[in-house]
């Protein structure tokens, strides 16, 4: 039985460079699983997500989602972009509406879609700002709308590209808790790119660690064996959390040192 999301022998080379960014990446994600992909900057983790999203063509290998090979981008693989990518001339409601109208028009009536947009605004706790434009709300709120928009497409898999990278530590923690809550409620299959070790351990079922690029591949996969729901305060001193954290740190900082720091 093949995996729900099956990334096999994925190799990505850019035209001008002789060495591929990623080579022979293998990753199987089960339905409902939350997988974090971590690695030093420049290792190609965002490239990997872009291929799964369909925004980038793989050089070799491919991605199969729910029994079908992906070709091009589509709403079954909704993306939460790092810089939120909301359309600035639309309100929060309209940003989600654009996605919902476009992707769910055939399956839902007008009124049903309206309810669904409001439901998703509520899911990310942004009802109060539904008529605000993106420049009127904070970075964390923008990202919440970005998540709400992605979820509203009813994707088979949610792709998050360093979703909280640009946020301050407090806001990031708050949004992580919200994503955990939503994942608990909806059980959506999620692949998240991150460079934050705590975030990876706290949120995911498995952490995929990429070696340094070029020629990056999956170096190690760590199962995070923590019961859900998880609580960040309770986990802070939990030996399982601490061990998982240490294992990722060891991989990143002892065995695969940041290439940028090495050069310096």
């Amino acid at each position: 039985m093949p995996a729900f999301l099956d990334i096999s022998r994925l190799t990505i080379a850019f035209p001008k460079s002789p060495v591929p960014v990623l080579s022979d990446v293998e990753l199987q994600i089960e339905k409902g699983e939350f997988v974090a992909v971590i690695g030093h900057s420049g290792c190609g983790k965002s490239t990997m997500l872009n291929v799964v999203a369909g925004l980038l063509e793989p050089t070799l290998g491919g991605v199969v989602l729910d029994g079908r090979e992906i070709a091009g981008p589509g709403p079954d693989r909704a993306v939460v972009f790092q810089n939120h990518s909301l359309l600035p001339w639309l309100t929060c409601y309209e940003n989600i509406k654009l996605a919902v109208d476009q992707t769910l028009k055939s399956s839902m009536g007008r009124k049903e879609r309206h309810e669904w947009i409001l439901h998703n605004l509520g899911l990310v706790r942004m009802m109060h700002a539904k008529d605000k434009r993106p420049h009127e709300i904070s970075g964390g709120m923008k990202q919440r709308i970005g998540i709400g928009r992605a979820l509203a497409m009813k994707p088979k898999v949610l792709l998050m590209d360093e979703p909280f990278g640009a946020l301050d530590a407090l806001t990031r923690a708050h949004l992580q808790d919200q994503v955990m809550q939503i994942h608990n409620d909806l059980g959506m299959t999620t692949m998240m790119i991150t460079h934050d070790v705590d975030e990876a351990v706290l949120l995911s079922d498995r952490i995929v660690m990429l070696t340094n690029g070029p020629n990056a591949h999956v170096g190690e996969i760590l199962h995070v064996d923590l019961p859900r729901p998880r609580d960040r305060l309770a986990l802070a001193n939990d030996p399982r959390f601490v061990n998982a954290r240490a294992a990722v740190l060891e991989f990143l900082h002892a065995r695969h040192t940041n290439p940028a720091l090495e050069a310096a």
Binding site: A53, P75, A78, N83, Q102, T103
Partner: peptide, 10 residues
């Protein structure tokens, strides 16, 4: 960014 959003929602 906007092109990507448009691509994802087709």
């Amino acid at each position: 960014d906007y092109r990507n959003v448009a691509a994802v929602i087709r």
